[in-house]
């Protein structure tokens, strides 16, 4: 399986994500720079990792979403390329229009850096197929703008179509997101965005390995 991780100025989780992908695929992912206009041939998955692209200027993810590499990713995503956006990556792909809604300032106004409990609501996606539906895993979050919002019609559709992939378990919503939404998938099923950082809960040194099955799901997809 061939994977790639995108780096924008201000991104800081690309190394963690590349390490996670290498752990399950056995191959070092291609590291793509934001100015590139084409994706490598035969790519199965591109990950937009976390960080603070462009210092979160204007709106988090807004400037990165308009970069050359995102045009290439958008075009390929429409053809079915799998895309995973984590944290700032979720904000970027949402700003790029690959997922509906928006991520705004945490309701508490605080940057939240801690572990949350994440419930797998949909285990038929390329990132959750090794999980049981309803399974709850520990996963770290680290963000100031993870408060997912969308219009009521979109929210109804997301829920009705099972497109909420991850939800913060009761009492652990760190940001005020609607319906405790932590991650969603697009209608076609090939684009997933999530605020928590599963790449930081997969090795013994992370303390727990709860999120390893998420990455292992990539192999089956």
């Amino acid at each position: 399986m061939k994977t790639a991780v995108v780096t924008f100025p201000g991104i800081n989780r690309e190394t963690d994500m590349m390490r996670a992908l290498k752990l399950v695929t056995g191959k070092t992912p291609v590291n793509l720079w934001h100015t590139e206009t084409e994706l490598p041939r035969g790519l199965d998955l591109v990950v937009v990792p976390g960080g603070f692209s462009y210092g979160d200027y204007l709106r988090c993810g807004a400037i990165a979403a308009r970069s050359p590499i995102m045009s290439a990713i958008r075009a390929k995503a429409l053809e079915g390329l799998k895309v995973l956006g984590v944290c700032n990556g979720f904000q970027i792909i949402t700003e790029a229009g690959l997922l509906p809604g928006a991520l705004v300032r945490n309701a508490s106004l605080h940057f939240v850096c801690r572990e949350v409990q994440l419930r797998v609501e949909n285990n038929r996606t390329f990132f959750t197929n090794r999980m049981k539906k309803g399974a709850v895993v520990s996963c770290p979050v680290a963000h100031g703008e993870g408060n997912y919002i969308c219009d009521p019609k979109t929210l109804t559709a997301l829920e009705a179509e099972g497109r909420v992939v991850f939800r913060y378990a009761a009492g652990t919503n760190p940001n005020g997101a609607m319906n405790d939404i932590a991650g969603i998938v697009n209608q076609a099923g090939n684009v997933i965005g999530m605020m928590p950082h599963p790449e930081n809960m997969i090795e013994p040194l992370h303390g727990r390995m709860d999120c390893l099955p998420l990455f292992e799901s990539l192999l089956a997809a």
Binding site: L58, I63, R66, P100, D151
Partner: peptide, 9 residues
């Protein structure tokens, strides 16, 4: 429409 505002919000 393209950058300055996010018309979703």
């Amino acid at each position: 429409d393209k950058l300055i505002a996010n018309t979703v919000i």
